[in-house]
Design a protein around this nucleic acid. Structure first.
Lengths: 184, 184
DNA sequence: CAGCCGCCTTTACGCAGTAAGGTGCGATCA
DNA sequence: TGATCGCACCTTACTGCGTAAAGGCGGCTG
């Protein structure tokens, strides 16, 4: 009766993410993760041989990798809506932000960076400009979400400022600095 | 002979910072910090009663609090040179970036944020614009330094890209989006 | 001299990550 | 059929962490 489904790397990662979202990164431990999976902690090592380090890497990849989806609208509009989606993803899993900032998993942001760069080229920027632009955009996103995260953790009851509005306005300023207005 | 000077909060924090810079945040432990100070770990608790939590808060305050200095040049130029100084400070102590991003020590960035806001107002922005602008600028700074930190930890030998140049160019784009060109 | 207080050490507890080895069970093959 | 094997998971045990609690110890004050 009720024999649990077998452990998989995916299930482990999803459960870990769920645990972080609910309890915070600090409460993610191998033993607790094992409990959530109804398994002894050491069982996890069979699927992630490099232990917690590897688990955290996978978590970053799962959250931070979100390239601009293909499409054919105005580059500027596509960037804008991607930025909103990306921020949404990051805020959904604020708990992993410290991991993303830490040295772990280089290359997790590679695909994302490249896709932005490409889109900026489509928008008419030269190679060097697109290179800088992608860095600016990704930097603004990570930094701004980090700031939001610390605010929302400081217990300000959100009536103080409208973060969404601020983000949208800020994104507008950033894009204004990056992409020259398209001639009609 | 050679009786050590007494422990102080300042000395503890400086030593901790030194330890992080040299060995990384992960190797900062109370026991190791005690060793560096030639003291038993528990001695630290006499000066920081709330233990490691309090230590980390102090580290953040020490690194992240750097308001725009008073002066009387062009607001835009003052912002630019402050941004360079701030980035320099953050890169000097990359190890604490994860702490700054984490929820700890709300208000460590308060003074800094306010000083930027004020300067943007001097530059002619309206209250709401200055509010957004300060968020954009601080966000860009934190995010961009975080990105640089992960790059430099990934072992890219810096001949790949010139981070300084990229930062300067990016800062230019951001400022261009925020402050309208001053009429001569 | 007695008492106190500020600074540091000692001891000990619970929890963390994980190395090493063991167990049980289904598939494979003689 | 029964022996063998290997995968998936468990058990045990070790080291190192943060820190509560209590103990010493030297210098000051009364």
């Amino acid at each position: 009766m009720s024999q649990r489904e077998p452990l998989t790397r995916e299930r482990i990662i999803e459960t870990a993410l769920h645990l972080i979202d609910g309890q915070g990164l600090g409460r993610l431990t191998m033993r607790r993760l094992g409990d959530s999976l109804q398994v002894e902690a050491m069982a996890i090592y069979h699927h992630l041989p490099h232990g917690k380090e590897q688990l955290l890497e996978q978590l970053i990849a799962h959250v931070a990798a979100l390239p601009v989806p293909p499409g054919d609208g105005e580059p500027r509009d596509r960037l804008r809506s991607w930025a909103h989606a990306y921020r949404g993803r990051l805020l959904e899993h604020v708990g992993v932000m410290p991991l993303i900032v830490t040295r772990r998993n280089p290359g997790a942001l590679m695909a994302t960076t490249l896709s932005i760069r490409e889109l900026l080229r489509e928008a008419g920027l030269r190679e060097a400009e697109a290179f800088v632009g992608a860095h600016v955009l990704l930097g603004y996103l990570l930094g701004t979400v980090a700031l939001e995260a610390r605010e929302q953790a400081s217990g300000t009851t959100s009536d103080e400022v409208d973060s969404d509005e601020r983000f949208t306005a800020g994104l507008d300023r950033v894009l204004a600095g990056l992409v020259r207005p398209t001639a009609p």
